[in-house]
Amino acid sequence: MKFVDSRQVGGIEIELLNSYIDGQLEHRSRAEIEEILRLNAEASNYVVQAKKLNALTRLSLDSALATPDARELQAPLNRRLDHAQPEIPAAERRVSRAFWERPLIAIAASVLLLLSGYHLGTLSLEYEVERQLTAREQQRVHALDALAEARNRVLEYIPSGTIHDWSSGDGLTQAKLTPIRTLRAGDNQYCREFQEHVSFQGREELLRGISCRVAKEQWRTRFILPQNESLKM
């Protein structure tokens, strides 16, 4: 169905759903909408899509601003501000410089989980998941960073066909990492195909990817694709 010309979705006013999505409702009205959404697949789908696009829009803008060229452009103003500011302890500063300093590949990986995450489970579950998206997205990012490190080590040291069990420090994320084969991409560059069975907060994903070696324990992921049939859009 087309949303742009509709006033209602599943019998509910779109503007009311938007107010819910954008956190404009009071606690009680929120709870009422949530009760309705549990039973209303159409409206709940709208909410899921809208929130997903919020998150994707944000990521898409951040990723464009995190390229090497963009950072080069941003450097003069950053420097100006560094000079103008009073000295801030390094620890605090790290907190304020958040997302945009993350490597592109981490952004790409979070998109993948974001995209595929929406297609696991039933509609009502999707909605439950959706509610906690922001908090989860942060946890995901941490988990992904940790997983990326583990992947680097596995690709560096583990022979093809061997399954490596990995678990994050907080125990929230588990993965089975399996290098499948090693390829040579000219000029002494090595790439490896690998499979990952990731379990994050009770959600499971099977991914297959190719990474190429940049330096010791540094691998750059070129492709990473979901394997589950149910993940297809």
Binding site: L59, S60, T67, I107, A108, V111, L112, F223, I224, L225
Partner: peptide
């Protein structure tokens, strides 16, 4: 001037579509 292959996984292309 962007690197063409290295960082351009399919996900980054998906983000470009969103933009």
């Amino acid at each position: 001037s962007l690197p063409v292959t290295a960082d351009r996984s399919e996900n980054l292309i998906a983000l470009e579509h969103i933009r």
